[in-house]
Simulated assay, not measured.
Amino acid sequence: MTDTKKEESMQNVFKVGIGGPVGSGKTALIEALVPILIERGHRPGVITNDIYTQEDAQHVRRVLAGVLAPERVVGVETGACPHTAVRDDPTMNLAAGAELLDRFPDINVLLYESGGDNLTLTFSPALTDVFVFVLDTAEGDKMPRKRGPGITDSDLLIINKIDIARYVRADLAVMEGAAHDVRGERPVILTDCLTGTGVPEVADFVEERMAVTCPSAR
């Protein structure tokens, strides 16, 4: 595929960046979201980022076995800070996406998972169309008040692991309220990715933004 055709194919795919701290549930979100997207007629591909290993990619392949072909999940080993690979110089991820689309041109939704990072994480607009940031209740209900572009500027903020909030002394109402306070009109969704609670709403968000941002991906 020529470089021009690669650029055109990337423009016809809706690209979602998923970031958040280590252990917040980024991989679990992808594993819960992909089957819903497939059920709704979409054809997803997944690119994960780890610093030195392919652990996340391998985990996604195992969990989604029989749902998503393992070849549609690619792991990128960044070798450096995750910020570099998805924000500062997304060259490796762009190349991985182009290669995946070259092999599977039917893909219409590409999910990029960042390696675990801090609240300053963002995605380069050259890499993704929307940016989803995942927090979890175990980090404490104070987290939204810490702000940072991951919390305030992401297109969607997800508060995950709502099922364990009471065990970690996190007040969901306080956490959600603070998130809305610092985000204004930007959406917030509460999820439990292991049971699927809230994940259909995340799929709704993806489809709504796809229709506006990248209608050709339909």
Rank of each mutant, 00 (worst) to 15 (best):
G17S: 08
I18Q: 05
I18L: 09
G19T: 00
G20L: 01
G20D: 00
P21S: 13
G23W: 10
G23T: 10
G25S: 06
T27E: 13
T27N: 13
A28V: 07
A28Y: 03
A28Q: 02
L29K: 08
E31T: 14
A32C: 02
A32V: 03
L33N: 06
L33G: 02
V34L: 06
I36L: 15
I38N: 04
E39I: 11
E39G: 14
E39Q: 14
E39P: 03
R43K: 03
G45P: 01
G45K: 06
G45S: 11
G45W: 09
I47C: 00
N49F: 12
I51R: 10
I51V: 13
I51E: 11
Q54H: 15
E55I: 13
E55W: 15
A57P: 03
V60K: 03
L64K: 04
L64E: 12
V67T: 15
L68C: 01
P70Y: 08
E71Q: 09
V74L: 10
G75A: 12
E77Q: 13
G79V: 08
A80L: 05
A85D: 01
R87N: 11
R87F: 06
P90R: 00
A98Q: 09
L100F: 11
R103L: 15
F104T: 09
P105R: 05
N108I: 04
N108L: 03
N108H: 01
V109I: 13
V109M: 06
L111F: 12
Y112N: 04
E113A: 15
S114T: 08
D117R: 01
D117E: 04
S124F: 06
A126K: 15
D129I: 00
F131D: 09
V134E: 00
L135R: 00
D136Y: 09
G140Y: 05
